[in-house]
Nucleic acid binder design. Structure first.
Length: 469
RNA sequence: GGCGGCGUGGCCGAGUGGUUUAGGCAGGGGCCUGCAAAGCCCCGUACGGCGGUUCGAUUCCGCCCGCCGCCUCCA
């Protein structure tokens, strides 16, 4: 039974589902106005792993991830570039999915867009006004946080102390500095929709309330995002749902942020980010997944050239086993693109090491201790090599297959092929084999140097020379 | 000012009240190899500081120091 840390209670507790066997999860996706960076990559990878693990356990997962396609940032960007806001959003969204695909993440099962839900948002805001929880001002409609039972639940702070720390500008029309916009009245040139309060657009927090409840229903299982969304975004979502008398998320799952050298968080506003497209050109995207898998989701990860290089080495160790044992990829042809434990165990003709799978799940069930689970995978790698060295090929195959299976469960594909070897390179390899057969080692070494200069690592195995990049 | 988190061996990074180790990377020794590479075996007696609880704490409690996050937009 999976146990998860819930931000609302601050405790790790059993992940009990609303509907047994089915998981409903909603994660706060991007505002599409610029290129996604490493932090967004972690976002996608963390929830990709959550989803895959739930599926691995045999659960049917609905994974909703919204796209915010109307927002101040988009409007500002459009104005600055002399473009239409919807074009800015559309282009940024294309970039978003390209980057997430490159990371090997499954697409969410549903991707609602804010602009498609405006009428329903208007209904929610009107309902909140009707209930006396929201009020109209000169520039919009605001939620009165005073009217919300338990405001501060996620921030773990009472209303008074939140108010004392508030850095927002004083607005005479707002009853409390913490009151937030549900509806923003349109200024000239801004995208707008009709409403009882005149033309305008929805505030940021409202869309997630409406879309999550529409798609997943009240009391859905899991709501997630980065730790930077806890307050005010998620607090304000919960506040609206509570004020509207709707049951909201049962669990709140927040992951820690990506930090740069020195521990400062990576963010667009600090301008210290690396885009995912840059990352993917400099390293194997699987290395970034492994980097994310090596730390717990609630710990910050430091991404630097050194930590990426470290992950690449680890990846090479995993790939090395796949090469040696010619392991297949359990994700190839997997229904839904996910590995399911029971099916995988049943399908493997020579079996898998079920003890290792159980240990893996024990670690994962403990609030997703992915690093602990991966330690077990690396342990399998060592044991598989040792078995192969000892000539116990069936044992080695079973252990190796298990390692590949568990990597696949976390969305990490191992690569067992050495990559395409071009004709020129193959000729050098053949020449080197011939030289070695004649014990002309000076020539063999010269050829190895030549191959190395071209970026190939040369390995002499029992079946002759093998090269790889 | 309020709230929360973190400080583990050269580096990254889990975990735990005590007889037996996370794991990866780097490093040292050995085996294998024509030499390498890959792989295997062995090696490092780590838990910010000061007190307290305890038979015993890195693990619980308190204080202190340092770092970070949130309280404004942000994955």
């Amino acid at each position: 039974m999976l146990r998860l840390h819930d931000t609302a209670t601050g405790a790790v507790r059993p992940f009990e589902l609303r509907d047994p066997g089915r998981v409903s999860m909603y994660v706060c996706g991007p505002t599409v106005y610029g290129p996604p960076h490493l932090g967004h990559g972690r976002f996608t990878l963390v929830y990709d792993v959550v989803r895959r693990y739930l599926a691995f356990c045999g659960l049917d997962v609905r994974h909703v991830c919204n796209v915010t396609d109307v927002d101040d940032k988009i409007i500002e960007r459009a104005a600055a570039e002399g473009r239409e806001p919807e074009d800015v959003a559309a282009d940024a969204e294309v970039q978003w999915w390209a980057a997430m695909d490159a990371l090997g993440a499954l697409r969410p099962t549903e991707v609602p867009h804010a602009t498609r839900y405006v009428p329903q948002m208007v209904d929610l805001v009107a309902d909140l006004v009707r209930r006396g929880a929201a009020y109209e001002t000169g520039d919009g409609v605001y939620l009165s946080v005073e009217a919300v039972e338990g405001y501060g639940l996620l921030a773990h702070q009472p209303l008074a102390s939140l108010r004392s720390g508030a850095r927002v500008d004083v607005d005479d029309e707002k009853r409390s500095p913490l009151d937030f916009a549900l509806w923003k009245k349109a200024k000239p040139g801004e995208p707008s929709w009709d409403s009882p309060w005149g033309p305008g657009r929805p505030g940021w927090h409202t869309e997630c309330v409406v879309m999550s409840l529409d798609l997943l229903g009240e009391g859905f299982d899991l709501h997630g995002g980065g730790q930077d969304l806890i307050f005010p975004h998620h607090e304000n979502e919960r506040a609206q749902a509570a004020a509207a008398g709707r049951e909201f998320a049962r669990f709140w799952l927040h992951y820690a942020l990506v930090v740069v050298r020195g521990g400062e968080k990576m963010s667009k506003s600090l301008r210290n980010f690396t885009t995912l497209s840059e990352l993917v050109t400099t390293c194997d995207p699987r290395a970034y997944r492994l980097l994310v898998l090596r730390s717990h989701y609630r710990s910050p990860i430091e991404v630097t050239p050194d930590t990426i290089a470290d992950a690449e080495k680890g990846l090479d160790r995993l790939d090395g086993l796949a090469r040696r044992l010619a392991l297949g990829d359990p994700l190839d042809g997997a229904p839904g693109g996910v590995v399911v434990r029971e099916q995988a165990v049943a399908a493997a003709p020579d079996g898998v090491d079920e003890d290792a799978v159980t240990r893996f799940c024990d670690r994962m069930d403990d609030d997703l201790d992915v690093p602990g689970a991966m330690a077990g995978v690396f342990d399998l790698v060592s044991r598989a090599h040792a078995a192969a060295d000892a000539g116990a090929h069936e044992v080695a195959a079973r252990l190796g297959r298990t390692a590949a299976l568990l990597c696949g469960a976390l969305g990490l594909r191992l690569r067992g092929d050495a990559g395409d070897v071009d004709a020129t390179t193959q000729r050098l390899v053949d020449e080197r084999d011939a030289a070695r057969a004649e014990r002309d080692f000076a020539r063999a070494d010269a050829l190895r140097d030549q191959l190395a200069a071209a970026g190939w690592t040369v390995e002499d195995g029992p079946d002759g020379t093998v090269v790889r990049r």
